[in-house]
């Protein structure tokens, strides 16, 4: 499988009251195209920091992040913004929908960065809403009028509106109940089945079990890796069991 993103000796440090905190340390990583990559690790292991560093949301302290033949670690803030809008989609734990915009506008605000064709964009948004199972009656409501699961589905549509090469998700089910979580993860698996590359960060076993490649991070370095077959829907217990074993080995 071809890699879509690659890091080379990636480092990320934070300064705290004069003390340097090295969160990611010389990390080499390849994200495969079409894979559902899950990054796990204990709290403070640097998994979210890694996600933001490789997605161009934050600038690494040292090292390289290669995407499409370009080292995005050397990009300026504005160049990174353009990179994100063209290549990446993001799904957040807190969903981060904009309260003052309708559901449709939340999605179109991203889409209109790449096209001025409002009609075509609204049509694509409608298709995506239908694909993630969001009823039409909700499209023009405000985020405060949606349930958590519905809101996260809007988040996923927003992430997909520009047809990104990579979909990044940071604890996408972290603030949802179990049924809403399952529904959101079903959507993600469906997207992956359709060829969408996904990188997801989680500390939840059930969520991680949806992935096909599990990376375990400890103290800012890659500590272990597990490959799973593509999610089939009826293999949940087996996947969870394998994953649990892997995590036990990792000392989780």
């Amino acid at each position: 499988m071809n890699h879509i993103l690659k890091t080379n000796k990636l480092c990320k440090s934070f300064s705290n009251g004069g003390t340097q905190l090295h969160v990611i340390k010389n990390l080499d990583l390849e994200i495969e195209e079409g894979a559902f990559t899950v990054i796990m690790g204990s709290s403070g292991s640097g998994k979210s920091t890694l996600l933001y560093a490789i997605s161009g949301m934050d600038i690494p302290t040292l090292g390289e992040v290669w995407f499409g033949g370009q080292n995005i670690a050397a990009f300026s803030n504005d160049a990174l913004a353009v990179f994100r809008r063209k290549n990446c989609g993001f799904v957040f734990q807190q969903i981060h929908l904009m309260d003052n915009m309708s559901v449709m506008d939340n999605v179109l605000a991203s889409g209109l960065l790449l096209t001025n064709n409002k009609k075509a964009l609204a049509k694509r948004a409608a298709e995506l809403f239908t694909r993630v199972g969001l009823e039409e009656a909700l499209w023009h409501k405000f985020p405060s009028q949606l349930s958590g699961g519905e809101a996260q589905r809007v988040g996923i549509v927003r992430a997909l509106i520009n047809d990104p090469a990579l979909l990044f998700a940071d604890e996408p089910t972290g603030s949802l109940n179990s049924s809403a979580s399952a529904a959101v993860l079903d959507v993600m698996n469906e997207l992956n089945t359709g060829g969408q590359s996904i990188v997801l960060v989680t500390h939840d076993l059930k969520t991680a079990a949806r992935g096909s490649r599990i990376l375990y991070l400890r103290d800012g370095a890659m500590f272990g890796e597990l490959s799973l077959p593509p999610y089939a829907g009826d293999d949940k217990p087996l996947r969870i069991e394998k994953l649990q074993k892997f995590l036990d080995q990792m000392g989780w």
Partner: peptide, 10 residues
Amino acid sequence: GTLKAVGFTT
């Protein structure tokens, strides 16, 4: 932050 994340420049 959200708008920046989805690709708006400063």
